[in-house]
Design a protein around this nucleic acid. Structure first.
Lengths: 213, 213, 213, 213
DNA sequence: TATGAATGAGACTTCATTCAT
DNA sequence: AATGAATGAAGTCTCATTCAT
């Protein structure tokens, strides 16, 4: 039969093909809930509403699909813009950021990207690295940049804003993230988050705010 | 009959049987490297130097073996005694504890139990809970008890020693644990640890030490 | 596009898919020869000429495959129509039926379904029940219905046609089925069958035929 | 070490050793309930209250143990003496025998030797044969001998007592044995057995009793 | 491109059997 | 003789991947 070529409007591998998106969405849900080993290509196909064969049209194998999921997560979380408006004061900014950060980290409904990527990092170091650098370190860097401005403004004092930023973020996790990720406690309530973030902010400012006396 | 009674014949299921130990050692290495799903019973048998069948003489199934590994980890880590001598001052104690804690957490292969248990916590919540309660929360509790004493002694001031303890431990992780567990950085050097722990201690005391003025 | 639509694409799970048939055929042969426990999925795959994995595309597990075999046997044996033309006299009908019945039961490989299902009935009672009800009891019922007609016609006399039917069928088995199923004798010859069926018929009629005197 | 020989009072393989009996009892219960393939040597060891190793001291392998079970069954059932007192009249004798026979065949509590041996007969023909010859055929033969005497006494008339005996026994099974063995009905009650045996006896005598007119 | 049927390697697990004590 | 620890072959089942349509 002579081919009347279907004009190739969409190209497989097209980063933004609708099917690709569909697959990524299904895969994300499965991988985040069950982990890399726990989730099967069959389940992903079902969750995405495509056939198993189609998965392999868009992704070479399970690893590549997983990597693409993490990449997507990296992109989306990288896009999250915390409010680091330089004109706002440190206390307000830190409390707001801390709250948003913990809410993101401990969002209910299971399927933590942190958990999923951490779990595979020993076997797929590049994946772990990429996630750390482009999600965790990125956020630390943004907070550090903000802190730098407060230092310049004479409000805070420290010679290592990266470390200070990281300290603040870890302090905000205190008593919340570990119980959550180990399933020893449900997702924290807003009140709990507020209490912990306030305390972290207070500690942070006690250490880094320039004394006014 | 000469009475040289064969006493204490080893019994399968004996908590301290040599074979059982052997299996647990092999299993720990495999599970910690590859995770629960990634490690196979065959690999464990090889690592332990026993046949696959023998695994099932000592453990009912893969889950039970994994649980036993975690339990062993829990016991060992629970036995670790940090120096919380109540007569020592806070600064020394915190620095020493923080250093030992991070060295433990970030020793080569040391994040593995955390990673491995975290990874499975969604599917085996009791395992995650048990690990959190008997390892993480236990250490927090011990530090909190120490802090309580400093509060009573009038050296520190806070109405929530549990939170304070958790904050200190998380602060010590800043810039060290996350890169390590995501395989974005090798195990930190002693110098790096010292710098971070010193900074965390300084921040903590700035917030909680009673002002002498 | 020329419309020569590919209609009726074969669908897995289709009750009449060719592969499904193929598998059922292989499985029947293996199960009937070796029993449920004795036959392995690997052997069935080989017998059916498909891969082991394919077995599980069509049947959830070994039990379901076995049940499907029995179900198929039930359907096929249920379709067997003995000649119970109500207008024919009892003697002819009984002899013909008895002969056909014993030939079926004692054909080479013919006791196999009885044996195989009997063997598993203690562990899979529903399978045993279904086979009994839809094969054994069905035939008894059909014969009973015929006998009923002869009673109504005044040819026979009994107040329990079900029992009479069962008695006749069991009598026809005398000296044939037990040796055959215990492998103590080969399948009986037509002459042997005829002799036994004639004798059973004679006994039956001696008991149930209305005396003409 | 010089051997001071333990005087060998008991010899392994001794047909009547207590241990052997113990093993046979455990094995019978397991095999009869679960079948040859369904029962495991471990379960048998537990049921017998001996170690798995001991099983192999007395029996070469699972097959031989099974054969010994059947042999034991054969011996025990062969010893069962139905009352074939030649001086008793046919009707009483048949009813009594039929009742005892069906009660034996359909005894409640599962674990039918008939089922178990039938099930394995295709794969172990000698076992099936031996059971048939020494249990089933033996009983047929005894009944046949009794019938012969009644024929000689002029009470019954037939030229094939073996067939007649078999016919009677099969008739007695009517509506009872098949439902029972297929698990389509529980073990029949005494009343049910009586009704069926009475009917079988009536049919038998109608055919074979010498007419007194 | 999209499908889903088919595959076969490999996972977990059981179990008959052996052997040192 | 008796044990029970140990084995490894074999069984059931899953799943990533391929391929004809």
């Amino acid at each position: 039969m002579v081919a009347t070529p279907h004009v190739a409007l969409t190209v497989v591998g097209d980063e933004d093909s609708a099917k690709r998106r569909q697959i990524l969405d299904g895969a994300r849900s499965v991988f985040m809930d069950l982990g890399f080993d726990g989730g099967s290509m069959g389940e992903i196909a079902r969750a995405a509403g495509v056939s198993k064969g189609t998965l392999y049209v868009y992704f070479a194998d399970k690893c590549r699909l997983f990597e693409a999921i993490v990449e997507q997560e990296v992109l989306e979380q990288g896009k999250l813009a915390f409010n680091f408006d330089l004109s706002r004061d440190a206390e307000t900014t830190l409390k707001e950021f801390g709250t948003a950060y913990i809410q993101l980290l401990c969002r209910p409904g299971g399927g933590s990207s942190t958990r999923t990527v951490m779990a595979i990092a020993e076997r797929m170091p590049e994946v772990g690295q990429r996630f750390y650098n482009n999600v965790v370190a990125l956020t630390i860097g943004r907070l550090a940049t903000y802190l730098e401005a407060r230092v310049t403004a004479g409000e805070l004092v420290t010679d290592d804003c990266q470390l200070a930023a990281s300290q603040f973020m870890m302090s905000c996790q205190a008593s919340l993230f570990m119980p959550f990720i180990f399933q020893a406690a449900p997702a924290p309530s807003s009140a709990e988050i507020a209490r912990v973030v306030n305390s972290a902010t207070r500690m942070f400012l006690a250490a880094y705010r320039v004394r006014q006396d």
